[in-house]
Design a protein around this nucleic acid. Sequence first.
DNA 1: ATTCTGACGTGGG
DNA 2: CCCCACGCCAGAA
Length: 107
Amino acid sequence: MKDSGFFDKVYAVVKQIPTGKVTSYGAIAAYLGAPKSARMVGWAMNAAHNKPEIPAHRVVNRNGLLTGKHHFQGTNLMQQLLENEGIKVVNNQIQNFDTVFWNPKTK
DNA sequence: ATTCTGACGTGGG
DNA sequence: CCCCACGCCAGAA
């Protein structure tokens, strides 16, 4: 919906991430047709902070590392949320990343 | 208006 | 294998 901009597209994808799954910034960016604009995805997440409907905690970098956890309230809030969904996280690193990975294209 | 930074990713040395 | 630099776009100072 709406090509209002890169942001809205990112939101649309992130909102569609199923529970217990995660995706990477690059995957979303690539899905949008801008594999080099992965940074924008993260930036969009920053703006998404205002939109509680955006599970930004389900979006991590291509390493499966919780890089953005620093932007959340606490220190383990992001990790807690992920673990709450069944995702195992150790030292800010998602375990079985390939297993919990969700490809926007799969939608 | 200009400059810099920022939740990334990929490639080159 | 590790380190550095580039690209992308947008928002804030």
